[in-house]
Amino acid sequence: MKLSMLAGAFALTFTTLTSAQDFTAGVPLGTVNEAGEPTPMSSNVKVYGSFRFAESCTFDPERNLILAMNAGVPQVMEENDGYVSLINPDGSVHTAKWIGSSRDGLTLNQPLGSAVRDGVLYVADTDTVRTFNLASGQPLASHSVADAGANGLNGIAVAADGTIYASNTRDPQRVYRVSPDGAASVFIDGSPLILPNGVAVDNDGNVVVINIGNNHVMTFNTDGELINTEYAAESGNDGIIVTEDGTQYVSSVRYGSISRIVPGGEAEVIAEGIPSAASICYDSVQNQIVIPMNNNNALGFLPLD
């Protein structure tokens, strides 16, 4: 009885109950005390975890928070159960379910790849690219790529002009381009893609794509022409980061390594033995790489020199 009353009080206190607002973002960890007062968690307590198949992450430098995508359970078990967690830079939980605390006004089935650009969160969700306000979590738009053949969108990157590039890892093995107004088209179709996964936009506006099927790190111009190929230390790759100085970091989800490729150099392994090292992100404030670990339901943290 007490648990039911507490849950009810918490929901009434922390949810905006207005007819004008359907979507509600989650709030930082806290409870309602016996006096009925909302009580944030004490700063001397840290909570870790909160993930359900952590596939990718991205970083919000304005709030100094990591956004972790949680794909949830297989859709045959439960549809529309994906969510986004806010994580502090030390790995402790800020908001367990930020996008996804309520399903009102929200569709987020199985979020995989993610990217942030100009105050917008972009998420690859099966055959749709969904966008959210980075400050509030409010859903903004849904760009279907299904008519162009997408059925398993995975890696995602966003250019400075708002053009979206997203990989489709299963057949048809492609990278799609979605214009800022939502029009989807095929950017790269087939070879040299071999189970394409991670996608990034480099400092020259070119599109960098990695494969699960080999160790190629491929750079395409905006016409879809392959202009350069480099090589990670291992194959089975998932995540790609390109930093401001042009250094590339690649994660192998199959073999658990992080490769670093400096401009003009060969790949070196800077970390290994990481189970299911998925779609990594770069925390530019703490200068660290954050490593989602899929069904290990965890994030790894790799400080950089």
Results as ranks from 00 to 15, higher is better:
residue 88 N to H: 10
residue 212 I to R: 14
residue 81 D to R: 13
residue 275 P to M: 10
residue 184 A to F: 02
residue 221 N to T: 03
residue 267 A to K: 03
residue 229 T to F: 07
residue 37 E to A: 14
residue 35 A to Q: 14
residue 263 P to F: 04
residue 5 M to E: 12
residue 296 N to G: 10
residue 268 E to D: 14
residue 181 D to Q: 14
residue 110 Q to V: 14
residue 58 T to Q: 07
residue 156 I to G: 03
residue 60 D to Y: 04
residue 247 T to Y: 01
residue 45 V to N: 11
residue 227 I to T: 09
residue 43 S to D: 13
residue 127 D to G: 11
residue 57 C to W: 00
residue 126 T to C: 08
residue 303 P to F: 03
residue 144 S to F: 01
residue 291 I to G: 03
residue 252 S to V: 00
residue 244 E to D: 15
residue 302 L to Y: 03
residue 254 R to K: 14
residue 244 E to L: 12
residue 37 E to S: 11
residue 41 M to T: 06
residue 190 G to S: 09
residue 96 A to H: 05
residue 80 N to I: 06
residue 141 A to D: 08
residue 191 S to T: 09
residue 156 I to Q: 05
residue 128 T to N: 12
residue 170 R to L: 14
residue 117 R to G: 01
residue 47 V to R: 10
residue 213 G to H: 06
residue 153 L to V: 11
residue 60 D to R: 07
residue 140 L to M: 15
residue 266 E to R: 08
residue 143 H to V: 00
residue 266 E to P: 02
residue 9 A to P: 03
residue 24 T to L: 11
residue 294 N to Y: 10
residue 21 Q to K: 15
residue 187 F to W: 01
residue 160 A to C: 04
residue 108 L to Y: 02
residue 73 V to T: 14
residue 45 V to C: 09
residue 210 I to V: 14
residue 159 A to F: 04
residue 142 S to L: 02
residue 83 Y to P: 00
residue 263 P to D: 08
residue 107 T to G: 13
residue 280 I to F: 05
residue 174 R to W: 01
residue 167 S to W: 00
residue 96 A to D: 06
residue 186 V to P: 04
residue 250 V to Q: 03
residue 266 E to A: 15
residue 80 N to T: 07
residue 45 V to T: 14
residue 138 Q to W: 00
residue 89 P to S: 11
residue 76 V to R: 14
residue 136 S to F: 07
residue 123 V to Q: 07
residue 75 Q to V: 09
residue 219 T to V: 07
residue 228 N to F: 05
residue 88 N to P: 02
residue 130 R to Q: 01
residue 174 R to Y: 05
residue 165 Y to G: 03
residue 255 Y to F: 15
residue 298 A to Q: 07
residue 18 T to K: 15
residue 227 I to N: 11
residue 25 A to I: 02
residue 243 T to H: 07
residue 133 N to K: 07
residue 79 E to A: 15
residue 217 V to I: 13
residue 163 T to N: 02
residue 39 T to H: 08
residue 116 V to P: 10
residue 66 I to N: 06
residue 215 N to W: 02
residue 57 C to H: 01
residue 258 I to S: 13
residue 112 L to Q: 10
residue 94 H to L: 06
residue 281 C to T: 00
residue 279 S to Q: 15
residue 21 Q to P: 00
residue 94 H to A: 15
residue 154 N to M: 07
